[in-house]
Structures are given as structure tokens and as C-alpha cells.
């Protein structure tokens, strides 16, 4: 049975919606636009990376695919590595855990 667009949760076909649902989506989006403008990769390379991620068999929300493709591409381009990203992610989670609520989180 084909899935109807109207069956998708949270999707309105006519009404305008906010551009970004959460701040991290906006940051992930802008990182790609900025890295491309700085010449880190071509737009075709990015489209390929995003397409491979979307068609990789996992169904995620769009910007989650976007973020995974971004992580993959910057590692493939040698800008950073997967292990550095994982380590730094943990640094941020640790920093959040020791920061009192309401204060800016810094490493």
C-alpha cells in the first residue's frame, strides 16, 4: 500500500511552517552552507553525501540525515575525524552535566 502524504505525522501540506524546528537544525544547515562557501567541498559532493545517507536504509528525520551526512563528509575530507567528533561530543555532554542550569555551557 502506498503511503499517502496526508498520513505523515506533523505534516501540513498548505500552511507555512517554521523554517527550522530546533536550533541545532539551523546550525547544522548553516555549517554546510558555510563550509561549501569556503570551498571545503563542491555542492555536488554534498548532494551525493546527503543522498547516500538518505538512501542508506535508515529512516530518520530530514535534518538528522543532514547531520550524519555532514559528519561523514567532514571526516572524508580530512577536516576532522569520526573519533575526534565522538570524543568532543562527550566533552560537551560532560560540560553540560557539570554546568548549573541556566548558565552558559562551556568546555
Amino acid at each position: 500500500m502506498t503511503m499517502r502524504l496526508t498520513d505523515l505525522p506533523g505534516i501540513t501540506l498548505q500552511d507555512d511552517e517554521p523554517v527550522f524546528a530546533e536550533p541545532w537544525e539551523a546550525q547544522a544547515f548553516a555549517l554546510i552552507v558555510h563550509l561549501h562557501e569556503r570551498g571545503a567541498f563542491t555542492w555536488a559532493e554534498w548532494a551525493d553525501a546527503l543522498s547516500s545517507e538518505i538512501h542508506g536504509g535508515q529512516t530518520l528525520a530530514y535534518y538528522q540525515h543532514w547531520l550524519k551526512a555532514l559528519e561523514t563528509l567532514v571526516a572524508a575530507k580530512g577536516l576532522t575525524s569520526a573519533s575526534a567528533l565522538t570524543a568532543r561530543k562527550q566533552d560537551w555532554l560532560d560540560a553540560a552535566a557539570r554546568t548549573p542550569h541556566g548558565q552558559p555551557i562551556t568546555l
Binding site: L67, E71, Q90
Partner: peptide, 8 residues
């Protein structure tokens, strides 16, 4: 996910 974006 927020931590992943901040890491990048």
C-alpha cells in the same frame, strides 16, 4: 544531537 552539532 545538540552535543554532536556543538562538537562539529
Amino acid at each position: 544531537i545538540d552535543a554532536r552539532v556543538r562538537a562539529l
